[in-house]
Write a protein that binds this DNA or RNA. Structure first.
Lengths: 152, 152
DNA sequence: GGAAAAGTAGACCGTATTACTCGGGTATTG
DNA sequence: CAATACCCGAGTAATACGGTCTACTTTTCC
């Protein structure tokens, strides 16, 4: 399967936007500084998320990104696939022609695993994450940290 | 998480050895031809599996690799980790210092995911795979294929 | 004893991908 | 008009994956 920093960054960014959604549009720089992700790189990811309809953007001063739709309607799985990190664990991408046209010895195993992972990540929404105590804890620490470093 | 062809090859090779275990030691070339995996590359993987105690080797003519221990005692998870494809989905490898010494916003999510995947793969042993109808089906096809191509 | 079969070891390499940068845009606000 | 912030495409450094090549050593069997 293919879960890289790209997918992790995407989920982190989406969650960051979710945590600060009451502040209106969130700028790339804000997310970048809070989450410690390169701003230029983040832009690419957010662009993909927008293209997939998970975010909307507001241009100009005071602009930024906002979630499209309800927190509970956005699953972790949808975020990861939106930026191209597939959840698929098979080599043949599910087609079953892993070994010169035939199915390889372990095809079903990876197929089952893919399903397992996907159903797990589909079952977790931004709403779930936002509700977690640990997440709230980390978020407030990051907010404090940002205020602190900006006053230096 | 990091599931690449390396891990898939390793599981495939182990399963191949398991399916033919009654024939005594299985040579790298046999596995290579049946499973369509580069022999030289396979050797590296089998060496790691041996080093981790999942296989024993017999040198000389008629030699090859054999499973160490019971089929039911070898989990897919142990095979994958033995060749270096971790099941870990976190960036910090579980330590929790993902963001300059602190925990990142999504640490727990990846941690939970890792656990989910690991428990799934730990729950599947070679014995389970060997017992599957589809696997037996594919194995006999591969055996026929090998006999056929060797007589050309 | 020697040829052949088989594992052992490790350096090496091409390439694909990832993560990231850069340099310019364009829209919006005040 | 100037500052803010998104938009977009090209380029790049590092990594690691999949794989090769070479040169062994051990064991069996004739």
């Amino acid at each position: 399967m293919r879960l890289t920093t790209k997918g992790r960054y995407a989920v982190t960014a989406m969650l960051d936007i979710a945590m600060h959604r009451h502040r209106g549009p969130i700028s790339v720089v804000d997310i970048s500084e809070r989450q410690g992700i390169s701003a230029a790189y983040l832009e690419q990811l957010l662009a993909k998320l927008k293209k997939q309809g998970l975010l909307v953007s507001v241009r100009g001063p005071g602009g930024g990104y906002q979630l499209e739709g309800e927190l509970s309607g956005i699953s972790v799985s949808s975020i990861i696939t939106a930026v191209g990190d597939g959840v698929d664990a098979t080599r043949c991408h599910g087609s079953g022609d892993c070994q010169d046209g035939h199915m390889c010895l372990t095809h079903d195993l990876w197929s089952d695993l893919s399903e397992e992972i996907d159903s797990f990540l589909t079952g977790i929404s931004l709403a779930d994450l936002v509700g977690r105590k640990e997440v709230q804890h980390v978020a407030t620490r990051q907010d404090q940290q940002l205020i602190h470093t900006r006053h230096l």
